[in-house]
Nucleic acid binder design. Structure first.
Lengths: 218, 218
DNA sequence: TTTATAATTTAGACAAATCTAAAAATTAAA
DNA sequence: TTTAATTTTTAGATTTGTCTAAATTATAAA
């Protein structure tokens, strides 16, 4: 069993390994709001427990065991987010900090009952997939807006960036979950994207576009 | 704001002060599964924070501030117990450990939304009253079985002992929440109580009787 | 390829909460 | 009321997770 802190490290390493492999000490330090020296200490400890493969100065990768533990935390986090939004009427940008605490409650019974109570949701309020008990994700086949071809349409299914600033900005633009959009064209000049949303043409930056997940209309 | 551990101490001291005033070091140590020396250390710390009045060798009492903090934890604990039983179908003897963790989640919004979601419950699954946001209990006016007079009837509204063994035993006897019972008589010999439950006469020990809360029939 | 810069690690210290063993205070018993 | 038993406290050590400052390794630039 891992401590609260160890769980947080595993989760962060898991998220960061999507972007880079292996994961660097400084990247973890920044995300976990701590100093690089502290990260080094923890990495040694996690390596001792066979949760990560760690080579000095080279960064870390999760072992199979570590990955499973991490996915389990992600599962709990996302289930709690669904609960907060659907049952307690939290807004999607209010859930993160509370879910961050709830994810560490240790009780398999609790998680399974919660899953049942929520009717086995497949995605969280941000559109991120919820892994099952064994750590498997259902393949969702989403693409980012900047990967759409001109004139292709689709539905907003999620985001790949979770900062409050980003989410609030999206909401202001009317780019909320479930909304159907059409990509008119990507600018050759600055790669910004012109969209048709609610019969209105809007222009969003590439930075925004690449974090919005779309399910293409067939 | 208090740490997880400080919150636990406050809660235990609160529960123990119902029985004895002031609360002794050893009593706390036993309940919190730790050594008396550790308790002494923590009491000094809580005294520094003005959460308890502590005099060496004399035990502690909660200050007004400490009491309010403690009641708040009790409030969260009992709300979560209602959630676990009513929404997630936990049995009343399964809830305690999980609620013990959930009670420490720090978010006023969460607690208030949960309260609303549960439709403002007044008691938890054991019949214990749930204090409101300001720490006030609704007066419930319950008595213990051994305080009933011969031939008085009433409804089981709660228990004042929460061990799994005790709760399972009650369930076996059919003495569940909401059940109506009639006290036939208290034995002059061993103070055991003869009850009429479901048209059946049963005999329970004084130890059992004094932990069952009854709302008298008018 | 040497130098400079950036990233990472080590060494030693610290705070929170705990422990053991010994000392001190309180309470109960003779 | 002196002694014995119990309770509580102190002193010093330990564990977990963190920190600063200095040393080391890796990477980029000249």
């Amino acid at each position: 069993m891992q401590s609260y802190t160890e769980e947080n490290y595993l989760k962060i390493i898991y998220h960061l390994s999507v972007i880079s492999n292996p994961v660097q000490t400084n990247a973890i330090a920044e995300r976990i709001q701590t100093k690089a020296a502290s990260v080094t200490d923890m990495l040694k400890k996690l390596a001792d427990k066979a949760l990560v493969d760690y080579t000095k100065y080279q960064g870390v990768n999760l072992t199979q065991k570590g990955k499973l533990a991490a996915i389990n935390i992600v599962r709990r986090h996302r289930l709690w987010e669904v609960f907060l939004v659907e049952k307690l009427n939290f807004k999607w940008d209010e859930v993160h900090d509370v879910a961050e605490e709830l994810e560490h409650i240790k009780s398999n019974l609790l998680v399974e009952r919660l899953n049942e109570f929520l009717d086995f949701p497949k995605v969280d309020p941000h559109g991120d997939p919820i892994p099952d008990k064994d750590g498997n994700f259902e393949s969702l086949g989403f693409v980012k807006i900047n990967q759409l071809k001109d004139n292709e349409s689709g539905t907003i299914m999620g985001v790949s960036e979770h900062s409050t600033a980003f989410l609030k900005h999206l909401e202001k633009l009317g780019l909320i979950l479930g909304k159907t959009i059409k990509l008119i064209e990507i600018s050759a000049f600055d790669s910004s994207a012109e969209l048709l949303v609610d019969q209105q043409y809007i222009n969003i930056s590439k930075e925004l576009a690449k974090h919005i997940l779309i399910k293409k209309l067939v």
